[in-house]
Amino acid sequence: MAFYEHTFVGKQDLSDKEIDNLVSKYSDIIKKSGKILKTEKWGLLNLATKIKRNRKGIFIHFKFEGKNKIVKDIEKKLSIENGIIRYLTVKYNKLDLNKEYFNFKKKNKFYEKR
């Protein structure tokens, strides 16, 4: 049972309702034969370059544990999903769950500078 980190980037005009059912749809796939350790919503971040004509993307991040069959199912479904522009899965042998890089409680001035 390897550890995986999966993030996908949704279009900026996705409504919250669509995002929620996206998250629930993919977490059900993971729950079938794996275990979700953490899900993070990084929210609306502006992208470094234009990806498929949008400048901002909504980032959703999963940390889960399971077999590689899950990753194949997710990526098969994600490629035909039209609301998603980019996805990335990374395999780890151990995960540290407490380190968070994208929780902007206060408005992060780091992003205004760019």
Binding site: L47, A48, I51, G57
Partner: peptide, 9 residues
């Protein structure tokens, strides 16, 4: 390179 794929950097 991974950050570039996701468009973070």
């Amino acid at each position: 390179k991974k950050a570039k794929i996701l468009g973070l950097v």
